[in-house]
């Protein structure tokens, strides 16, 4: 049986037996709106009355200076921070978000006592359902870790560890993926490759990607926002042309990079 290649876009009309094995999400994409979000941390109001919209099936990137509250906003969506009673988190279909998203952190959070395959299928073990070994192996093939499936994390390089974390995120097979600077700890080349891989594997899901890197946002984002100020505000989305992954050195993309730098408060060098 030939599995679809990583670069092939998903099509909703695929035969059912392939849907299960293909990393691209085949279910209904959901849009999310966080309304009137408020978060105070140690007496500082990070954001107040903030509205965030995640379009269904799109990758929304969130840029901003460090400490502005990007990660907190993501954690709020993931239910990892206590929510203010006034905020409203709504999915377009009216059902709760809990249980319908996968979370990927800047740290790979691999468990050192499990091998790569065990880490990828951790969610199944926690939920007390049998692990789908075949699907996990297919995902490991997609991220290029077939040979490492039996290795423990301490034997892997940083790039391999983050790819394992990506496979674990995809194994969850959720319609929404929340990613907090997933590639920031990697070297430039590994990061570039992983961004391309992630853009392909995450297509059709609703994704929020928090990053500090404008080039990353332009490479894989469908909609790019800048969060800035205190309390933080979200600006109008920048929508880069063409499907991701994009080449940040492309002539169409470079002006957008300049624009984002300006929104982030960096004035162009005089030369």
């Amino acid at each position: 049986m030939s599995l679809c290649g990583a670069s092939q876009p998903s099509t909703p009309g695929r035969p059912a037996h392939l849907t299960d094995r293909h990393p691209a999400f085949a279910g209904e994409a959901i849009g999310i709106r966080l309304h009137a979000a408020r978060l105070a941390y140690a007496g500082t109001v990070l954001f107040d009355a903030l509205d965030v919209r995640l379009e269904p099936g799109a990758t929304t990137c969130l840029l901003g200076p460090s400490g502005v509250g990007k990660s907190s906003l993501l954690k709020r969506l993931a239910g990892l921070l206590p929510a203010d009673p006034d905020d409203q988190l709504r999915c377009d279909d009216g059902r709760p978000l809990a249980g319908r998203f996968a979370w990927m952190d800047q740290r790979d959070l691999l468990l050192p006592w499990l091998d790569v395959l065990g880490n990828v299928t951790l969610g199944a073990r926690l939920r007390g359902v049998p692990a789908d070994r075949a699907r996990a192996l297919a995902l490991l093939e997609q991220v290029g870790l077939t040979d490492a499936s039996g290795m423990r994390p301490d034997a892997l390089s940083g790039g391999m560890r983050q790819r394992a974390a990506l496979a674990r995120t995809l194994y969850e097979d959720r319609p929404v993926v929340l990613m907090d600077e997933p590639f920031s700890a990697l070297d430039a080349l590994t990061r570039y490759r992983l961004q391309g891989l992630a853009a392909e594997l995450l297509a059709t899901r609703t994704v929020l990607l928090v990053t500090h890197d404008p080039a990353e946002a332009l490479r894989i984002g469908d909609r790019v926002h800048v969060l800035s100020g205190r309390p933080a505000r979200l600006d109008e989305a920048l929508i880069p042309p063409g499907p991701p992954p994009r080449d940040p050195t492309d002539d169409q993309i470079r002006p957008l990079h300049r624009e984002l730098m300006a929104r982030l408060g960096v004035v162009r060098d005089a030369c």
């Binding site: 993931a78 239910g79 990892l80 979370w103 952190d105 740290r107 959070l109 951790l122 926690l126």
Partner: peptide, 16 residues
């Protein structure tokens, strides 16, 4: 326990 692991587990077992 590393708090990140617990957060991860929470997102994996969360239900509506």
């Amino acid at each position: 326990t590393e708090p990140g692991w617990l957060d991860l587990a929470r997102t994996m077992t969360a239900r509506g």
